[in-house]
Amino acid sequence: MKHYELEISQFADNELPAGEQKELFAHLIDCEECRGTLSDFMGMKKEARAFYENIDVELNPAIALPANAERGKEKKVYKPLFYFAAAASIVLGLLFLLKQSDINRLESRYDSLKAKYNEVVFAGENLPQKEYIHEAAKKENSLNVKKGMHESKPTALKNYHSVKQNKKNTGKVSAVNLAVVQKNESQYQLQKSRQIQVVQVTKNDFLTPQIIGN
């Protein structure tokens, strides 16, 4: 007769599939030896469990664990702090770079405004060349002579000297004075163009056709 000791061991462990249990039960009815095996196995299980459950041992408290074991645990606890500190450092670094960029932008803006300010305040630095003024004065004198005003000082030269003196005293040229000089320049240009016209239309120009006509 076939015996079912392996299946009995499985059944005792509650690991025998339900389909095989029916076959085992049918066998157990007729097999006294297997009933004895089942009884022994169940008894051993119970005794073995009782044996281990009743082992009474006084273990050292957890504090008796070696220091390096607890240190390992502490290391684990502080590990997240390391990552947090690293992340915070990166963020602070980025903020510093952004701040630095802002400073550079503001400095650039300041320089630009300062340049514009200087352009306005020291616009008079670009004075007309002295030679140009003298030429203008010479022309003006020439016109004055024609008008009979021999001793009159040329206006352009007067204004130029005035502006220059003012700059020497105050360290800068006012926009008003500069405007005066520029106005004189404009007047000179106008006078020059008129003078050219005057020069071009002479008495000979009217006589020549008559001569030709003659």
Partner: peptide, 20 residues
């Protein structure tokens, strides 16, 4: 018994070291 007690200590030390 004594070997088993030592084993308990050793097991927890090894656990702490290999926790990662």
């Amino acid at each position: 018994m004594e070997e088993a007690k030592d084993a308990v200590q050793e097991v927890f030390v090894r656990y702490a070291k290999s926790e990662d």
